[in-house]
Amino acid sequence: MGEGISRRSFVRAGGALGLLALVPRARLEELLAASARAAGTGGGHFLTAHELDTLRAVCGRLVPGPPDDPDPGAREAHVPEAIDLLLGAFRVSPPMIHAGGPFSRRAGGKRDDFTHFVRLDRHAALGWRIRLEGTRGKRQREFAGPVRGLQQIYREGLAHLDSRAAGHFAALPGPAQDAILSDQSDDQVQELVGVALSNTLEAMYGPPEYGGNRGLVGWKYTHWPGDRQPRGYTDAQVSGLDAGGPGFKLDAKALRGMERFLPALAGVRPSRERFWLRSRGLRGR
């Protein structure tokens, strides 16, 4: 692909139109550090120090790292801090909901456009306020019925985990934490797990500009190239097999284990009050 074209055809009008707001790497680091420091100072962007500790324990069970798993997990990827940053999005300027585009510097881009977050306009901001804060009985938010916001789900859910753990979930050994998190008879636990799992996967496997996937750990162990623009793939990479690719083949046992995931290939469009369960499934329309 011609670098010439990509330069020519991308216009920096977004900044000029006031659509974009830069969050430089250093600022992101600072924001995450504010969450990370919470343990000492009594608060991240939304969660309290104690809540953040509990969330770290939860995320560490959902996507474990060493010693339970050889590769870095959610804690190492700074997923809990990224979730705190999402929950407190409106306490930060700009709210880091939609990273910019078209390029990061990871695949030949000259500028780091992903760090230029797209500003939420009035309409978009209301949608995200409702997602994060809930409708809270406010008339201008309840036009289509109530929505429990993520902040409330985390706050109540994390407290509930403590109540299931005689006061201190994070202090339990891993297997005991797993036993609580996998208790399908406890709706409040499952609501929290649903939300936390969805946010954890986003922060673990999404672009690092949102605060997670630190050091690209979520992309490294999965051999995922991540964003590919403007370099893209060569015709040979599209049409042929990779020479010396990841190199492992599929065994029959692995294959049998996959059947139970087939229905999820259809994707999920959850009802409005469970918006976080959305997933796309097999693509192509």
């Binding site: 216009v11 974009l20 990273a99 585009g101 078209p102 390029f103 992903f114």
Partner: peptide, 15 residues
């Protein structure tokens, strides 16, 4: 000026 894009290879934003 020509047409730009605020879209990226970003699965999070797409959701």
């Amino acid at each position: 000026h020509g047409i730009g894009s605020l879209f990226g290879n970003d699965e999070v934003k797409a959701g």
